[in-house]
Amino acid sequence: MTTAIPRQLDPQRVQRALVCMHFDPAFAAAIRGDGRLDLPEPLTAAERDLLRAVDPRALKTDAMRRARAVQALLEEYPVSAALLGMPVVDAFFSSLRFREAVFTRGSMALAFASYLEDHSALVGGVATIEAAAAAVRRAALRPLPAADVADPRAHLQCNPRFAPRIVPGGTLAWYERALIQNGADPLRTLAELRRPWRKRPPRGGQQFLLIEGKVGGSLALGGASEGLVRLLLAASRPRPRAELVVVAHELGAEGDEADELLDELAGEDLLLRVSAPPPAA
């Protein structure tokens, strides 16, 4: 027989659940009830009792809290939002994806990308583009990883400020037209959207894209060769150079071309020398 170790009261866990209550009245009501809670980490009985004591009216004093958060998402996902419709966007704040971001010190915008994956039939490759843009925009704010110059075990990894992506054929042009359709004031357009767009982004075929986040906040978005995109995707985690040479050969490089290609990509900062990950335990 095993005995459960009683968990101590964790004020951060209480605080994070309280954040979810501020954003989601239904979750706040669920806290006050006795049912199971859909949370990344369960609350102890004592923690839940603390939260039950909150007057639900006190959670409503900032009437625009959720609207501001929705606006932040619309700024980064204008076309995905038009395809989903506002009620589905708004429902993100009642989803486990949102709560995971709150409980794991995550990014709301990147959690929304995961939420879009749950609705991929509606948003298709458009969500892939906007999620990649959100990711590289944040990567551009952080220092780049780098290995010690003399480290003989250094690996290669795709620069996190670049996102190689494969989307259905024609998605980029469709996306650019959709941005134009959203107009000069996309937030207003989306706020006035009465129902989701009926048109859907392309589904068949493949298009290879490279999205770059630049210091200062701008983005570069364009097509790339299949080989480059697949090679960079293979390098989305740190890998020994020899492994990427094999990948390059599989993608069609011949002889010394693979090594030359890797050197070239490193010279253009598309690939970075990074420390090898610690060996698995």
Partner: peptide
């Protein structure tokens, strides 16, 4: 809440 990121600033008491 979460990471220090766009749209995630607020102020709640401890």
């Amino acid at each position: 809440f979460g990471a220090r990121d766009r749209g995630q600033m607020l102020l709640l008491p401890p």
